[in-house]
Computed example of a mutant assay.
Amino acid sequence: MQEFGSNNPEPIVLHCGHEDPVAFRELLTKVGDKWSILTLLGLSMMPGDRARFSELSRTLLPISERMLALTLRSLERDGLITREVFAEVPPRVEYELAPPGRSLLPALQGLVDWVATHGDQVKASRSDFDAR
């Protein structure tokens, strides 16, 4: 790890002590993605933390069906949600927060609270910056 302020050209790796900094950054980027956050929060607002694709799609407008499908697949792959297919005609598919996804909710709520508290300040700062 490079010391702050050194002339060493090696990149600084911020990984919070994680043994695999690349995997750490990859997962942080994925769970910090706008649609991942909104999808997890959307599921948390559904009864039983569970919903059908169409319910999520209506909740997360203006997300496209393609983006929602990609986001759900990614979250399922990472074990943050589960997908259950019911043998009915037409087939019914429901998505539910898995325990790791539920454990993210307090951190996501902290982020939501921060945006609610500081959103106007950030907006004003952007206006001031753009006016210069």
Rank of each mutant, 00 (worst) to 15 (best):
E3S: 12
E3M: 07
F4L: 15
F4S: 11
S6Q: 08
S6G: 09
I12M: 14
V13R: 11
V13W: 04
L14M: 09
H15N: 15
H15Y: 09
G17C: 09
E19H: 15
P21L: 08
V22D: 09
A23H: 08
A23D: 10
A23E: 12
R25N: 14
L27N: 13
T29D: 13
G32Y: 12
D33A: 13
S36C: 15
S36N: 15
S36L: 02
I37H: 05
L38Q: 14
L38G: 00
L43A: 07
L43C: 06
M45T: 14
G48E: 15
D49P: 00
D49H: 07
R50D: 11
R50H: 13
F53G: 04
F53H: 11
F53R: 05
R58W: 04
R58Q: 10
T59D: 05
T59M: 07
L61K: 11
P62L: 04
P62A: 06
E65D: 12
R66T: 15
L68Y: 09
L70H: 05
T71Y: 05
S74R: 01
L75I: 03
E76Q: 14
R77W: 06
R77T: 10
G79L: 02
G79P: 02
G79A: 01
T82Q: 09
T82H: 07
E84I: 03
V85H: 05
V85Q: 10
F86I: 07
F86E: 10
A87V: 02
E88Y: 01
E88I: 04
E88P: 00
V89E: 12
V89A: 02
P90K: 06
P90D: 06
R92D: 01
R92S: 03
E94F: 02
E96R: 14
L97H: 07
L97C: 02
P100V: 07
P100N: 06
R102T: 11
R102S: 07
S103A: 13
P106Q: 07
A107V: 08
L108P: 04
L111G: 12
D113C: 01
D113P: 00
W114F: 12
V115H: 06
A116G: 04
D120E: 15
D120Y: 05
D120V: 03
Q121D: 14
R126N: 04
R126D: 01
S127N: 08
S127Q: 15
D128C: 04
F129E: 09
